[in-house]
Every structure is written in structure tokens, then in C-alpha cells.
């Protein structure tokens, strides 16, 4: 019997050029309002001139096997966030709103979910589930001009994502949180804790910095 589909994304940091095509394609595909993002590309700088380095770290929802957002839901609202059979973490806007949404947003150690400023509901990256259901790649993957994003069924040995993971060493963000992410990174070790600590972050009012704040907050 065929194995159950399990979606995962690999982001190869060696191929990310920081172009932000993924950020605008995500905004367009998901009609994400200004001020919030489902997908960020963080820019990190480190070093002293001329030995200076700059690196890009795309972040999005990890579609965790143990989603902390779901775990943080108040009693009686457990089904406001659910994990689909294919691993994608989805939400019910009718239930995941107001205080319920706030709790779920607070619960995520990756700061991906946000409150929709007008609808007052929980939203986040869902690997473009509506596209995946229509047989399409997530918008950020389809348009990634550096070729840094590989998406597919990790249970399918013929899939690109399976092959990429089999031939590259991958890591996840914040494994100590025990959330068991399904978004993996190649060359995450280029971004050492030391480098991040010393990294100069972009000046305020740049959207990228919002990502930084969300991330460390």
C-alpha cells in the first residue's frame, strides 16, 4: 500500500539570493494584508569590513508534527487548528479568532501566525494548501528564482524533496522546542549562533526587521 502523503519543504540557504520574490508571491497568492507576512526572508550581516558576510534566512510556518500553536489553544477550542492527514497545519477562521487566535499566535515559537488586522482572525502560512490541493506547488516554491525551495511528499522516494533530503544534511529551527518541524534547512549551520548574536540587523521600518522582531520575540 502506498505510504501516506507527508508534505515537507527544504530550503537550501546556499541557494537563497535574498530576492524576496517568495515574499511578494506569497502576499499575492494569499492576499496577505500589509503589516503581516506568512513568509519572510531575514537578512543577517556579520564581520568587520572588508571581511564582511551577509546571509539570507527564509522563514515560514514549519507545519510542525507537534504544533505549538495548536497546543496553546484554550480548552474547548482544540479544533480551531487541525493537522491535515498530509501534515499541513490548518485553521478554522470561524473558531480561531479573538482571544483564541491570540493564544495560538502567542504559542508559536517561530512567530509565523498573525492576527488579520481587519478580520481579527488567526492566519499563517499553510504551504498554500489550496494550491497543493489543486496539484500546484506552493507560491514561494514556484517562483523561487535561486532554486532554494524544494517541496513535496517526503514519503515518496521519487519526489524532489525526498531526493534532496537524502543527499543533503538538513536541520530544523529550534528543535529544542520539540515541535518537530517539517520545514528543513540545508546549510543552516552557516548561520551559527555566534554569527546571529553578532549580526547587525537591518534598520527599523524595513519589513525584514519585523521578521527579526517576530522571530526573537
Amino acid at each position: 500500500m502506498a505510504k501516506k502523503i507527508k508534505y515537507a519543504m527544504v530550503i537550501d540557504i546556499n541557494r537563497c539570493i535574498g530576492c524576496k520574490a517568495c515574499m511578494t508571491s506569497c502576499k499575492a497568492e494569499n492576499e496577505v494584508p500589509l503589516g503581516v507576512f506568512r513568509n519572510h526572508v531575514r537578512e543577517l550581516e556579520k564581520g568587520i569590513y572588508p571581511n564582511m558576510k551577509k546571509i539570507f534566512l527564509p522563514v515560514l510556518c514549519n507545519q510542525c508534527d507537534k504544533p505549538a500553536c495548536k497546543a496553546a489553544l484554550p480548552e474547548g477550542y482544540e479544533d480551531a487548528i487541525t493537522k491535515r492527514d498530509d501534515g499541513i497545519v490548518v485553521w478554522d477562521e470561524a473558531k480561531c479568532k479573538g482571544k483564541v487566535a491570540e493564544a495560538a499566535i502567542e504559542g508559536c515559537p517561530y512567530s509565523n501566525p498573525y492576527m488579520h488586522p481587519q478580520k481579527n482572525v488567526f492566519q499563517k502560512c499553510d504551504y498554500c494548501a489550496h494550491r497543493v490541493d489543486a496539484g500546484l506547488q506552493p507560491a514561494c516554491v514556484a517562483t523561487c528564482i535561486g532554486g532554494a525551495r524544494i517541496f513535496g511528499d517526503v514519503n515518496d522516494s521519487t519526489s524532489d524533496v525526498f531526493k534532496y533530503m537524502a543527499t543533503h544534511s538538513t536541520h530544523v529551527l529550534k528543535p529544542e522546542e520539540g515541535t518537530e518541524p517539517n520545514t528543513y534547512y540545508v546549510a543552516l549551520d552557516r548561520i551559527t549562533a555566534e554569527r546571529l548574536e553578532g549580526s547587525q540587523q537591518l534598520p527599523p521600518t524595513d519589513a525584514t526587521e519585523i521578521a527579526v522582531e517576530n522571530f526573537s520575540g
Binding site: T170, H171, K174, P181, L188, A193, L196, S216
Partner: peptide, 8 residues
């Protein structure tokens, strides 16, 4: 902030 995890 970030940890290199055990996914490898």
C-alpha cells in the same frame, strides 16, 4: 533563537 537540530 535557532538551533541546529536533529533532523539530519
Amino acid at each position: 533563537f535557532i538551533q541546529l537540530g536533529s533532523a539530519a
